[in-house]
């Protein structure tokens, strides 16, 4: 049983609860144990970085330090949290002064940021630690009847200086996982594009245009559903789907699954168990 510290993303605690619930169902099947860090705080969501660079460093040093205290890597299942925490880690590792200043404050809680724990996406852990062959061997209900559009989202890929796992403009990791689960992927031009989440409340029209384009391609390609490793992408593509498609004058719909739900389906859990009925489009 491999153990990890698990970061609680704000959105998975509220709007996309089904994401973490699905992981809870199957983690043991894949010989994983994710230990939830109830102490972790909001990462700042790609905004805190410029609102206050120092607070940004502090909160994420603290998030990582909690994992380090357990001696475990920190696993994240939201792209933006992943990118944000990794950005902070990079800054902390590159600046001894900043690290010292932050650790001075963390001392109060008996914490120290050392830089020893990796910050990793759930998708990466599935591929690198569990392994596609093992996953394949555990599949109970192969997704062989499904054609799937893999929507990676931005912050698991870019900036590559911070993420650096997959090709930032032509990724393949999610495609590989889908295939290991028995599914078929479509050649999806929008797979490495943006969902528009981060401007939803600031420039809604633009955001919905962005989302509509990605949805339209998946619909036109006759995909059965879209899968995404990011709950923010999910929120736009599922929650705002009707609005986006209406704006683009498209009369259709397509379900959007979390990565954790797709894995759950292949491992034999039901839609109901996985909470898929909580989606707006299902």
């Amino acid at each position: 049983m491999k153990r990890y510290a698990y970061y609680l993303s704000c959105i998975n605690e509220s709007m996309t609860k089904e994401l973490d619930r699905s992981i809870d169902l199957w983690q043991k099947d894949l010989d994983m144990e994710l230990i939830k860090l109830h102490e972790s705080t909001c990462c700042g969501g790609s905004n805190l970085e410029y609102v206050s660079p120092k607070h940004f460093a502090l909160v994420n040093a603290r998030n990582i330090a909690h994992a380090e205290k357990l001696g475990l890597d920190l696993v994240v299942s939201c792209n933006t949290c992943l990118m944000t925490i990794r950005t902070a880690k990079k800054k902390l590792d590159e600046s001894p002064d900043l690290k010292r200043e932050v650790n001075e404050l963390l001392k109060k809680e008996g914490l120290e940021y050392k830089g020893t724990s990796e910050v990793r996406h759930l998708l990466w852990v599935l591929i690198e630690d569990v392994g596609l062959d093992v996953i394949k061997s555990k599949v109970k209900v192969p997704l062989k009847n499904f054609t799937i559009a893999p929507f990676y989202g931005c912050h698991i890929l870019r900036p590559s200086t911070v993420l650096g796992k997959d090709n930032p403009l032509d990724p393949s990791s999610l495609d590989q996982l889908i295939e290991a689960l028995g599914g078929t992927t479509i050649p999806y031009e929008h797979k490495n594009r943006c969902c528009g989440f981060h401007t939803l409340l600031v420039a809604e029209e633009e955001s919905l245009n962005v989302a509509a384009e990605a949805l339209a391609e998946a619909i036109e390609s006759k995909a059965d559903f879209i899968v995404t490793p990011c709950p923010l992408c999910h929120t736009v593509l599922d929650g705002y789907q009707a609005k986006a498609l209406k704006q683009a004058h498209i009369n259709a719909s397509i379900p959007v699954l979390h990565l954790s739900e797709m894995v759950g389906l292949a491992l034999g859990y039901t839609k109901k168990q996985l909470g898929i009925q909580r989606h707006i489009v299902c």
Partner: peptide, 27 residues
């Protein structure tokens, strides 16, 4: 209005960290 997709930075032929500039203006 920037949506932080980092495509600009990733495709910059001169490898300029464009998002740093955008964050800089916001800050």
């Amino acid at each position: 209005d920037c949506t932080h997709c980092y495509r600009c930075q990733e495709t910059c032929v001169k490898s300029i960290p464009i998002m740093d500039a955008i964050h800089g203006i916001r800050e």
